[in-house]
Design a binder for these strands. Structure first.
Length: 317
DNA sequence: AAACTTTACAACCGCTCAATC
DNA sequence: GGATTGAGCGGTTGTAAAGTT
């Protein structure tokens, strides 16, 4: 894409030290690194940089290898199926690009991140729906929906956009019942506290859409039963925490049942203690009675369902 | 055709975490 | 237990290429 800066790659000697090169990699550097990696394999990156005769820091070599030179990289445009999968995974995992990348063979976290930021995010944003407030809502009005994604305007973060598919579902959770509008949609919008695209929780989507039409186009639907849950549910945000970390903070996460109030809607990313009102009047064992701990929701099980994206011949770890 | 704007993505930066000393 | 080092991650930047005016 970009041509290497003719001056950028030149070694510069400052204070008798060869200054490490920065910027775009030249084909020669690529060749050196590639050759070295193929003959010696991966090791200490700073050693690799030195031994391969590159005036690059190990970090730079690592990045170049991982994001560009690795032989198993797919490269090229993302196919629609991959797009869908990214959207799906992002709705579950948030900005955990590396985790998303592990589920997209041949794609790197950087690639996916760039694709998301430059293309998908914008596309979702542009597909702003035309949701009207409950009082004057027009259910016949078409809604812009792309593959189960319900973008919102930046200025309207708290406005939940409903797909007619969802709103016509007979298995509608209390969030939307007929013209009833969830006053606290953010609880069901696991993504984007910063105001770009806004996605439903995948499980929420499922509860709304899976019973009727498939939410994920040709890839089939994710059935709550398959992901270790028997009914409606929602996921707390995962941003800025690994799954392991999330499990570690199990005890700080309270999801208390409270039949008549959607109380406490604070989902600040920095506040890991969420009290979630009884969004759905659930009776399944995950929601009954006492606190639901985060570890009880089966993220791995959820991720297992990626296997329903049959276009990919891989299995989720 | 030139100037300007937008898009796409490679690469860098800063941070965290884990291993080692 | 603290310091150091390396790996890895996510956010951000820089810029070539493409598109538009």
């Amino acid at each position: 894409m970009r041509k290497p800066d003719p001056n950028m790659g030149k070694d510069r000697v400052i204070n008798n030290k060869i200054k490490l090169r920065k910027g775009l990699w030249s084909p020669e550097e690529d060749e050196k690194l590639m050759k070295y990696m193929l003959t010696n394999g991966q090791g200490c990156w700073s050693d690799i940089a030195r031994n391969a005769g590159l005036q690059r820091c190990g970090k730079s070599c690592r990045l170049r290898w991982i994001n560009y030179l690795r032989p198993d990289l797919k490269r090229g445009a993302f196919c629609p199926q991959e797009e869908q999968l990214i959207i799906h995974l992002h709705s579950i995992l948030g900005n955990r690009w590396s985790q998303i990348a592990t589920r997209l063979p041949g794609r790197t976290d950087n690639e996916i991140k760039n694709f998301w930021n430059s293309t998908l995010k914008k596309r979702l944003k542009n597909n702003t729906c035309t949701f009207s407030p409950p009082n004057n809502s027009d259910s016949s009005e078409p809604r812009d929906v792309v593959g189960g994604i319900f973008p919102v305007h930046d200025h309207d973060m708290m406005t939940l956009c409903m797909d007619s598919t969802c709103s016509s579902s007979t298995s509608m959770p209390p969030m939307v019942t007929g013209n009833q509008f969830d006053p606290f949609p953010v609880l069901n919008n696991r993504y984007d506290m910063t105001g770009t695209a806004c996605l439903f929780d995948v499980p929420t989507c499922l509860t709304q859409g899976a019973m009727g039409e498939a939410f994920y186009g040709d890839f089939g639907i994710l059935e709550p039963g398959k992901i270790g849950l028997e009914g409606d549910f929602s996921l707390p945000p995962l941003e800025s925490r690994s799954i392991e970390e999330s499990n570690a903070v199990n005890n700080s996460i309270e999801m208390k049942s409270n039949n008549n109030h959607y109380n406490n809607t604070c989902l600040s990313n920095t506040d890991q203690s969420y009290k979630v009102g009884d969004m759905f009047g659930l009776e399944n064992h995950h929601w009954q009675g006492e606190n639901l701990r985060m570890g009880e929701w089966d993220l791995e099980g959820l991720m297992d369902n990626i296997s329903s994206f049959t276009f990919l011949d891989f299995h989720v770890e």
